[in-house]
Design a protein around this nucleic acid. Structure first.
Lengths: 215, 215
DNA sequence: CGGTCTGTTGACAGCTTTCAACCTTCGTGG
DNA sequence: CCACGAAGGTTGAAAGCTGTCAACAGACCG
């Protein structure tokens, strides 16, 4: 975390940061800013809000007692998260990079909101179930290939992907160690399937080759 | 599959089997019977119904091109499944043993049904996300222990569990080979943590030891 | 009683993790 | 502008866990 991020964190962690727009914030539709690494909510906290990513990216995860972490989902621009079944959160949510989030209290929502919510919850469900296939039955190469294609698709199908997250995040999402993630990236680069222009950027050179690997 | 099951399958696959109750079937609230192994729906099929298990058990799964299978969920008595985001099913659903299912067409459902559906969808979502932790970050022993505890809890917290499903199903649910599942069962039996009174039956002798293993 | 399906067990191979060393990047401060 | 330090990333070697292959045992059914 950079010093700039640290300042952002201490100042604006969980606090709306929207200078000159207090009125909009009152109305509940101004985004709240989170610095890289800032906690959005924690396991065990009371819940009752829904979150929409305005910019940046979010990781949602669980921890085991010994510190092992499983990231169940990344949420990118435009995506909604924070669905829960009961009064407390079962997961942690953190900003990956500097992130803006629109927070809506579910208690304040009008009556037929549940109907509008269902499709989003179902989208999350299908995504989670498809990820189960990756974690349960695919090897390291297949996992990374599927991850890159998914990220590409969710960023508009472009060849240049901005990953935003560190190798540790990718590993904890794919159920792999950071070393294995790194090795697969290197192998894909050596085969000319991807390029790694900078630390968190990936360019897909041969999408078809990736698709074949993801199978 | 036994011969009895085979007959059930050929006769009643996807057909209501509720002699003398055609009127109730017309009303849509009589269960449809499925023999062990019978398909309830298939990937790619048009969907538009929700399914509630009356008795028996169901597996929901996806396949990779080379035949690898990941069971994303088992559904036991009282549980609802079949949620989908768009017009076609993304998964297969099959009866594990002789199973009765109540099928409700979503098009025929009254307007505010979505509100009632949301909690069930969210329950499935949380279950899937928790299973991601198991598949991504737990070893074979932890996976089997967590599975046994989950099955016990869902069957009323009893010590005697009726698994119903074969080792292959357990393996494809936990992301393990049938041999590994078998080996873990044997090791737990040798340690006196469980007993295996019959093939598909498990008695939890020392629940605390299982909890500790599930970490 | 024989056949088939399911489950168990052993030996070995293979993939991933772990541990360690080193490199790169980036922000900071001299 | 450059040097420095910390954090993140890469690569190699070895260990460990799980998968695969194979043989065998047991249950169920005809």
């Amino acid at each position: 975390m950079t010093v700039h991020d640290e300042i952002l964190t201490s100042f604006h962690r969980r606090a709306a940061f929207d200078p000159g727009m207090a009125d909009r914030r009152q109305a509940g539709d101004a985004p709240t800013f989170f610095a890289a690494g800032a906690e959005i909510y924690a396991q065990g906290e009371k819940c009752g809000s829904l979150y929409t990513v305005e910019f940046g990216a979010v990781r949602v995860y669980r921890l085991l007692a010994d510190g092992r972490r499983q990231i169940s989902a990344f949420h990118l621009v435009g995506e909604m998260f924070g669905f829960e079944t009961d009064a407390t959160h079962h997961f942690f949510a953190e900003a990956i990079s500097a992130t803006g989030i629109r927070i809506q209290r579910t208690t304040l929502l009008h009556g037929d909101f549940a109907s509008a919510l269902l499709p989003m919850a179902l989208q999350s469900l299908v995504r989670a179930q498809e990820h189960l296939l990756v974690l349960g039955r695919q090897n390291a190469t297949e996992r990374v290939a599927a991850f890159l294609l998914d990220m590409s698709e969710r960023q508009g199908g472009l060849r240049r992907i901005d990953l935003q997250m560190a190798r540790a995040d990718i590993g904890d999402y794919l159920g792999l160690s950071i070393e294995t993630v790194s090795r697969v990236f290197s192998r894909l680069r050596q085969k000319g399937i991807i390029r790694l222009p900078n630390l968190r950027g990936v360019e897909i050179v041969r999408p078809q080759a990736l698709e074949d690997l993801a199978a």
